[in-house]
């Protein structure tokens, strides 16, 4: 090893080292608040984080919500279970368009409430119940989500609730320029709200109109916060991110039925594990003639409609 001559050190510092030094010195120089913001800016996507880092993020969120809402909000990151692939069924012959599912969903998932008193009025609903005419069949051109008669169901009308279809081949995931949305192993398409840049490409890519955008700071009164949250699901969202139905990830990964299913007074909604041959959803697929919305787009939804 006598002929070993070490390479001379590069006279100019490399780019990475330079940036590190700049960031470090800037961090020391600036106030604590600024440092936090900088760390926030430099952090990794939730998918790339180690378990310890995720735990750290959850704690930060919990502290943030406690300060914001003045109450304990638990943020979980329950992972997908092995051997579970969620599927949903909806009986169109039972649905009478009462929108109880929508109300329950807003309550469960901490969506922004509509309020004329709030500085912003940007109500968000993950479920959209479409009123359609029996004469025309399932025709999205003639669908009306704003129906508001005194009583439902109305003569000659039927109702088609639409929410995220949790596609096996999700176009929204393909178009996201930053990889902030992806399909989990149990089939739920999730959004990392900290990684979402709010470009809304996914919204235009989704053929079901299932995604919503927080145009303003969500209007979520602290007494209405659901404190049982999932980091990829119903935790309170910041302004400028996209959100959507996650099959109530905070409930279903804990083994419970989704909130919309439990709220439905007509029993039109069915849910279960597609990989379990004895589950309700599998019985449904085997017994009934089911269909999916916009099958021709090859999105392969895991949300099945049927006439029971």
């Amino acid at each position: 090893m006598s002929d070993f001559t070490p390479l001379p050190r590069s006279p100019s510092p490399d780019r990475r080292g330079f940036l590190k030094k700049v960031v470090a010195s800037a961090a020391i120089a600036t106030s604590a608040g600024c440092r936090q913001a900088l760390e926030e800016f430099m952090k990794k996507s939730l998918r790339e984080m180690s378990r310890a880092e995720v735990k750290d993020v959850l704690q930060k969120h919990e502290a943030e919500y406690k300060a914001k809402f003045g109450r304990e909000v638990e943020v979980f990151a329950t992972p997908a279970r092995e051997g579970v692939l969620f599927g949903y069924g909806l009986d169109l012959s039972r649905c009478n368009g009462n929108r109880k599912c929508v109300t329950a969903c807003v309550k469960e998932n901490n969506q922004s409430r509509g309020s004329d008193d709030a500085p912003h009025n940007n109500p968000i609903q993950w479920i959209r119940v479409l009123e359609m005419e029996k004469d025309k069949g399932i025709s999205f051109e003639h669908a009306n989500p704003y129906y508001n008669p005194k009583e439902v169901p109305e003569e000659g009308k039927f109702y088609l609730p639409v929410q995220c279809q949790q596609c096996e081949n999700p176009p929204c995931v393909k178009v996201c320029p930053v990889g902030a949305t992806w399909a989990e192993r149990d089939g739920i398409v999730v959004i990392d709200y900290d990684w979402c840049i709010g470009c809304r490409c996914c919204m235009s890519a989704c053929p079901y109109g299932a995604r919503s955008f927080n145009w303003a700071e969500p209007n979520l009164p602290s007494d209405q916060v659901n404190p049982n949250t999932h980091v990829l699901g119903n935790r309170p969202r910041p302004r400028g991110v996209v959100e959507k139905c996650t099959f109530c990830i905070q409930r279903t990964r804990a083994g419970r039925y989704p909130a919309c299913l439990e709220a439905c007074p007509t029993g039109a909604r069915k849910f279960g594990n597609l990989l379990d041959p004895n589950s309700e959803i599998r019985r449904l697929l085997e017994e009934k003639r089911v269909f999916v919305l916009k099958e021709e787009l090859n999105t392969r939804p895991k949300f099945f409609y049927f006439y029971g």
């Binding site: 009478n96 509509g114 129906y147 009583e151």
Partner: peptide, 16 residues
């Protein structure tokens, strides 16, 4: 029985 539906979603023009 017939039911009273919960309120409809906001129209885009009403979002501010």
């Amino acid at each position: 029985p017939s039911m009273v539906p919960d309120p409809p979603p906001a129209r885009p023009e009403d979002i501010r």
